[in-house]
Structures are given as structure tokens and as C-alpha cells.
Amino acid sequence: MSEEIKPNEIVDFLKPRVGARFKMWLGICAHCGLCANTCHYYTANEKDPKMIPSYKIRFLKEILKKKGNVDKDYLQKVYETVYYECNMCRRCTLYCPFGIDIALMISLLRALLFSQGMAPEGLVKAIENYKESGNQMAVSDEDWVETVKWCEEEMAEELVGLEIPIDKKGAKILYTVNAREPMFYPQDMMEVAKIFYVAGEDYTYCSKPGWDDTNLSMFCGDLKTSKMIVENTFKRAKELEVQQVAITE
């Protein structure tokens, strides 16, 4: 990409999003290094000092200080750090004396990169799928229902009277899956059907978008899509008047 980076765009993006906690954390981090050996990237990379969680968020401080005056190469460096060196697992937060939430700041940096059109292809593709079909693998609603039906047939041979309810109004639980399950691991759906049946659970699947409980757009800070996905599921839950939404393992 050759477009110029506009500092004011970066500032405008960050301003409403850098909350009081972020400012405080950037201000009081004692650079004590207690978080260093809490991060698996640090330990796995022979204690490479560059992997210290506190070091990874220096970008946020620098970008704010430079008022967004950074170039593409710089953002590329940020990209490599926030994607390749952090899983946003929050382990470091549990060990920091101030409870500084590094992962939260990393996700803000990811969102900033996304607003500048930088995001990993894998995630961008998933986002397109979400927007199109409501799930990450672009499974069509028909295929989804068919898969559920097929699982039901398979399982009915093993257990007498097994049914997999779809769109059952008033069920207790709306069960949602990872969209990889109908694609690659239908076995998972069969197993769960068995468990629910034996346990006598009153549950249901839904046939329209909302049945995928993954939210990959969150990982690159695309909050708009992220919100849409969550709302989809809650819309279904409301329509079906269920008490609870359950998510797969």
C-alpha cells in the first residue's frame, strides 16, 4: 500500500478510545520487569527482552506522544509485535503489581491498525464471511440445517428417539457452535447431541445466522462486525424465547 498515513486520522481514532485506564497505565508502569517471565513468548524465545509485555505497548505511548506522526514502516513494526508476539491471554496482567492490562492495549493497537487497513488476511477473509453469511466459514443457512439434520439421522441410529431440535420455541438453551464444526468436525455436533439427549436437556439450534459463536473480527479490532455477530445471536435468542445461550467448547 502506498497511501499516505494521516496523523490526524490516527489521533482522531485514538482520542475517544484511549480511556482513563490506558492513560494511567502508560503513566505508572514502573518498568519493573515483573511481567517479563509471565509471558510464554518471552520464555519460549530464550528470554528475549523484546518479548517483555511492557515493552510491547511502548508503541501506544510513542504514537500518542508523536501525535500520530508515524510512517508505514513503523506501523508494520507495530503489526508484527501485536500479532506475532501477543495472544492477548492476559497472563501478564495477573502478575503485574498494578494489574496493567497489556492485552487491552494490544487490542487497541490492533484496532488502530485495522482502521489503517492493516489486518491479517486470514481474519479479513473471515470478516467478509461474517458479513455475508453470519458465520466465519461462509456456510449457507441451508447447508447448516442440512448438516444438523444429517447429524440427527446418524445419531438416531445409535440412540433410540434422539432428536436434534432446530428453532424450537421456548427451549431452555440455545446452543451455538463454532462454524468449523459443521465444516470439519461434525463428529463434535453428534457427540454433543448425545450428551444433551442423555442428560435430557431442553435445547435447540437456530437455523438463521447467529448459530456461530466465534467472533474473529474481535481479534483485529473490527468492533462493528463484532457487534453485529453478537447481536445476531441475541436476536435469535429473543425470537426463540430461550433462557440462556450456550456456547460450544
Partner: peptide, 15 residues
């Protein structure tokens, strides 16, 4: 960053 003497309580509280 010496202000952590008091902000400590707020930071820990928030987390």
C-alpha cells in the same frame, strides 16, 4: 510515574 503511590489503588481496583 511516582504518582503510582496513589494511582496504584485505582489501577488495581479497575483490574
Amino acid at each position: 510515574k511516582l504518582s503510582h503511590y496513589i494511582l496504584f489503588f485505582f489501577s488495581r481496583g479497575a483490574s
